[in-house]
């Protein structure tokens, strides 16, 4: 499983999944207790993301598009008289999101799942990986579906659509999920194929 994994291979790709995950955990703790490191780690994390090539730069652009949300946090904290805290929270988010993106873009999903399974032995890594891959695959498809509906609305309406498209879009999404589950079932389901009983004639 690859999912968000991106090429070309870089220095980050050659590091072990476990070490990267551990580094991310340590970073989380570090930034929580000593936020002073943020102003060093923020540019470093963004540089690391850019070093992953076009996909990394693309991800950074996506992160930067969150600016209205970040601005809202800073404004709120300024309003309650803690603008420094607002800046710290935003910088912490931006750093950790960039670091987490470096991890997912440079690590195969099955390698990450193997680490998770070592930490949590009861969790089915396979099913979790399939679920995650399905989410990654579905997001652009769902957005496209919504955009197509929006276009269809605009083609026949003088006013822009607001909440009117949400219900039919959700119904279509549920219907699509039925089809996707059939396709998954047609290739053995999320658990994979059980062992073939010896009494069965056909084989593969």
């Amino acid at each position: 499983m690859l999912s968000l994994y991106s090429l070309p291979e870089t220095w980050w790709h050659r590091r072990r999944a476990g070490s990267k995950l551990l580094a991310l955990c340590v970073l989380c703790v570090l930034l929580w207790w000593w936020p002073v490191f943020l102003w060093l780690l923020l540019p470093l994390s963004w540089a690391a993301l850019c070093s992953l090539g076009p996909q990394g730069r693309n991800t950074l652009r996506w992160l930067l598009r969150l600016w209205p949300w970040w601005l809202a946090v800073v404004l709120w904290q300024t309003w309650v008289g803690q603008w420094e805290l607002g800046l710290t929270v935003v910088a912490r988010w931006a750093t950790l999101l960039a670091c987490a993106s470096v991890l997912t873009l440079s690590t195969r999903l099955d390698a990450l799942m193997a680490v998770v399974q070592r930490i949590l032995p009861g969790v089915s890594g396979r099913r979790f990986a399939i679920a995650l891959a399905l989410v990654v695959r579905s997001v652009p498809q769902l957005l496209d579906g919504y955009r197509a509906r929006e276009l269809a609305w605009r083609a026949r309406s003088l006013r822009p659509a607001r909440h009117q498209l949400i219900a039919p879009w959700l119904v279509d999404t549920l219907r699509d999920s039925d089809h996707v589950s059939l396709a998954l079932q047609a290739r053995g389901g999320s658990r994979g194929l059980p062992a073939l009983p010896s009494s069965t004639i056909g084989d593969n």
Binding site: M1, L4, Y5, A133, V136, L182, A183, T200, G202
Partner: peptide, 26 residues
Amino acid sequence: GEQWPRWVGVVFQNTDHQLLFPTVIE
């Protein structure tokens, strides 16, 4: 029935329903 995918493959009408993963290799 759970063994059927070993013997019978299906190509669905709508490719968007059949493609389960984000990349071609997966």
